[in-house]
Amino acid sequence: MAEVLVYVDHVDGAVRKPTLELLTLARRIGEPVAVALGAGAADTAAALAEHGAVKVLTHDASEYADYLVVPKVDALQAAVEAVSPAAVLVPSSAEGKEIAARLALRIGSGIITDAVDLEAGDEGPVATQSVFAASFTTKSRVSKGTPVITVKPNSAAVEAAPAAGDVSELSVTFSAQATGTKVTGRTPRESTGRPELTEAAIVVSGGRGVNGADNFAIIEALADSLGAAVGASRAAVDAGWYPHTNQVGQTGKSVSPQLYIANGISGAIQHRAGMQTSKTIVAVNKDAEAPIFDLVDYGVVGDLFDVVPALTEEIKTRKG
């Protein structure tokens, strides 16, 4: 059976959920072979084997942390040469897309980014994409070389499928370009204790209607009652009320949770681009004409300062 390379996104050996989803998709096309790089790479093996990796190729070197993107491209290219896979799957983060693009160019292959689904086809894997702010769904495939495809978070279910997960060390020679862009400082993000925005099953967002940084406590309280991640519109981010890392939309994160609750958000096209594929959409807005209501499964026309706290209370009561 053909092998499919899966690029592993991990933090010091802890595999992030989108990579496990990729293993589910990879199994539809062939046998997953995972590539884990950097500090803690070897520690990823157990989780990867548990989710279907037949092999895990690892490599650690200081270059991965000290220089931007290119060392990882060099390593992934070495893995492609070692394995001759039927496809290469990479999580669709900003960095993942850059790595995938440079790899595709080097190996003379086409690239598809931001797939939301993947299936085997007669002429290679067929990727589903959601385009024009999710108003169209396309099906595409790579017509030259080894398909390189980046896949968005929440595109498949994580499934346990125990496999051998044989670990071996990948041999990597860094290119002349590898040390071109130096990382001279790194400030890790502080954990909020809430789920990761792109991975969360429920996202509770606030927009301009929240009217102030302090008021975001209302949004956070609702999020915490549901075990949800917190999102924000660009208007709320630009006003300095909430960090840019939490922005949902075209120039922020694209989310596809089971439930999205928009509070005081009008629903501009650029915001919709990042949340329109959510399974269930709920909105609270005092303007009955707000475009967000065109998307909702359930909407409340009202003041969020009344509705949201009441909702949070009711959830807490019901949950006991």
């Binding site: 292959s109 396309t138 017509s143």
Partner: peptide, 10 residues
């Protein structure tokens, strides 16, 4: 090097 086979309005 890529081919779009179909596009459908959501």
């Amino acid at each position: 090097w890529t081919k779009v086979d179909s596009a459908a309005e959501r």
